[in-house]
Write a protein that binds this DNA or RNA. Structure first.
Length: 571
RNA sequence: GCCCGUGUAGCUCAGGUGGAUAGAGCAAGCGUUUCCUAAACGCUAGGCCGCAGGUUCGAGUCCUGCCACGGGCACCA
């Protein structure tokens, strides 16, 4: 990695001038504008400020002790004290040769691989998966893939909502109102109907509510009939989840729902009480955070006054289980931003409970899905959009476009292309915005197939494959690389940033950085493709450009795969 | 009331530790195909970065105060 090499040497030069400077504070990053150079460092300006010296002078002094002449054609101090580096084309060419001969693809595996448990998706039993589940599911999967690409050991766990008070009403509905034919036709719709009907009935009739409560208690006490129905509802729901995950190409290592932790809840509460972390208050068991200004006014309930545990209790038991089972270095929760306080509380309780356990806990939250009116999203009928319908629509729109662009392909091929393009578009639309922004749902934006979208990236890849379909080529470290045209240099420089991008994604849990990078790279390729003939070029340009195409194709494919998006040989 | 976010082009959004003239896509307008996929490329137009102060060589970015919107704040998850 050329930027790493420059950074290392710059650090050494800075330390030789200022022995007390912290090397980590000196960084090199891509130049915002290529007219200034390829990489730049602003660290000297900050160091000069701390030391109240002239930044330009300090930068000059450091540059005087810096030898990067084998990598850079120029090193300049510019403006108030930037250090700008311009790479030598032959150094870039050399950097491209590694991956051509089996070396790693512009990124290095993590120096210290971590064991990571990641909790995402978490749909509820007896409810359809809707657009509200899409962000957690797609974001969690993308983070998993990027971390695995960098060599981390990642364990995915789908913490499904398979326990709770809703089952009282569902059991009443199942026993008194079930339509067996409807259950066969669309199980989730039928379960949803049952819940709604009983819920409505219970609002006007206290007897129904009481009945639901009794059924719930029976379930909790292990009544065989109720357990059987409950398990069937879970199985029906799981089938639906699996169908969606299958279409999205997402798999979980474990699916341990809330019910799995049920037997452990009591001991969690007991232990927290015994240790004096929790105490009784107003009939409930509560953890107070008097010494924490952030949480002082927000005590956490771990047992309700009726003796039942709640969400916090389950999450604590889950945390404990994950810790003892997998011994992770890091646990990641991918949920919506509304749960920030909840996770602050859980993490704070956990730190008191296990002060010596060196696990990092991260709540990777994302903004809400809103409608065009900036309010929580609903369709006109007041129904949320089901995920399955969204995916259907995506594939349908993509099919129309494929059929228009490539009418010569047989229908089966067009269907397959539409599937990959449609699902890719949905995933990319979800991953490319900053995750913390609220999310305005819009069919056309979500399913767009041109501009900054997955199909644009897939198209760049398909064009590359099309070139290689026209002839076998042998590419290896002996392949000549000549970078002369600005489009060739631009593309080659783009390739070098892949690793930097992957690291940034993991650092801040932000897959949108990878989207931005790949979109920029595909743009560089498109410009190269317009300006530089490949197959018709004379040697050594021809081989060199083929090598550029090959490497670009690999980065696009690997990068998209890290987002959970597939590529196509043809589209 | 307190806490967490958000406010950038007509629309949807990017803008790692403060850095050089604020960037895309869509929509609008004008071009490019005897040539490896035009699902592409080029050009034009479009901006008191919510408002007002402050910190400093330098603020979309940091601090304070307002305004607007979303969310959260003990027995839902």
């Amino acid at each position: 990695m050329l930027y790493r090499e420059i950074e290392d040497r710059l650090r050494a030069a800075v330390v030789s001038v200022l022995p007390e400077a912290a090397p980590e504070s000196i960084q090199v990053r891509p130049c915002p504008d290529p007219q200034f150079g390829d990489y730049q460092s602003v660290a000297l300006m900050q160091l000069a400020r701390q030391r109240r010296t002239n930044p330009r002078q300090l930068a000059q002094e450091v540059v005087g002790r810096l030898d990067v002449s084998d990598i850079c054609s120029s090193v300049e101090v510019a403006g108030p004290g930037f250090i700008n580096f311009r790479l030598r084309p032959d150094a870039i060419a050399q950097a491209l040769k590694g991956p051509l001969s089996g070396g790693s693809l512009f990124f290095e595996p993590a120096a210290r691989p971590r064991t990571v448990v990641i909790d995402f998706s978490s749909p509820n039993v007896a409810k359809p998966m809707h657009v509200g589940h899409i962000r957690s599911t797609i974001l969690g999967d993308a983070l998993t893939r990027v971390m695995r690409l960098l060599g981390h050991r990642v364990i995915t766990d789908n913490h499904i909502g398979d326990w709770g008070t809703q089952f009282g009403k569902l059991l009443v509905g199942w026993k008194t109102r079930l339509d067996p034919a409807a259950l066969v036709a669309d199980p989730i719709a039928e379960l949803e109907r049952l819940y709604r009907e009983v819920n409505t009935a219970s609002e006007s009739d206290p007897a129904v509510l009481e009945e639901a409560r009794r059924e719930l208690v029976k379930l909790q006490e292990g009544d065989e009939e109720n357990l059987r129905i409950w398990r069937e509802m879970i199985a029906l729901s799981q089938t639906q989840f699996d169908a969606i995950y299958d279409r999205l190409d997402i798999a979980f290592d474990h699916t341990l729902g809330e019910s799995f932790y049920n037997p452990r809840l009591r001991s969690v509460v007991d232990e927290l009480r015994r240790r004096g972390i929790a105490r009784e208050s107003e009939g409930a068991v509560v953890v107070f955070f008097d010494d924490d200004p952030q949480l002082r006014d927000h005590p956490a309930l771990i047992q309700k006054s009726d003796g039942a545990a709640n969400y916090a209790t389950t999450d604590l038991a889950t945390l404990e289980h994950r810790l003892t089972t997998w011994k992770p270095d890091l646990i990641i929760y991918v949920t919506d931003g509304r749960q920030q306080l909840h996770f602050q509380q859980i993490f704070a309780i956990f730190r008191r409970w296990h002060p010596d356990v060196p696990v990092d806990l991260a709540h990777v939250w994302f903004g809400s899905i809103l409608g065009p009116d900036n309010r929580p999203f609903k369709t006109r009928a007041g129904e949320v959009i089901k995920l399955a319908d969204l995916l259907d629509e995506a594939e349908e729109r993509a099919f129309a476009v494929v059929s228009e662009k490539s009418p010569e392909l047989p229908e089966a091929a067009r269907r397959e292309i539409a599937r990959v393009v449609g699902i890719g578009a949905v995933k990319y639309a979800d991953l490319s915005p900053n995750r913390q922004s609220d999310y305005v749902f819009d069919w056309d934006r979500m399913l767009a197939l041109s501009g900054n979208t997955a199909p644009y990236l897939q198209y760049a890849y398909a064009r590359i494959r099309s070139i290689f379909r026209r002839g076998e080529v042998q590419l290896d470290s002996g392949t000549p690389i000549v970078l002369e045209a600005p489009e060739e240099l631009g593309l080659a420089r783009g390739l070098l940033e892949f690793g930097l991008t992957l690291e940034a994604v993991v650092e801040d849990y932000r897959p949108n950085l990878l989207c931005t990078y790949l979109y920029d790279l595909a743009g560089r390729f498109a410009r190269f493709y317009e300006a530089c003939p490949v197959l018709k070029a004379d040697e050594p340009q021809r081989s060199s450009r083929l090598a550029l195409c090959e490497l670009t194709g690999r980065v696009l494919q690997e990068g998209l795969a890290a987002l959970g998006i597939k590529t196509l040989e043809q589209m």
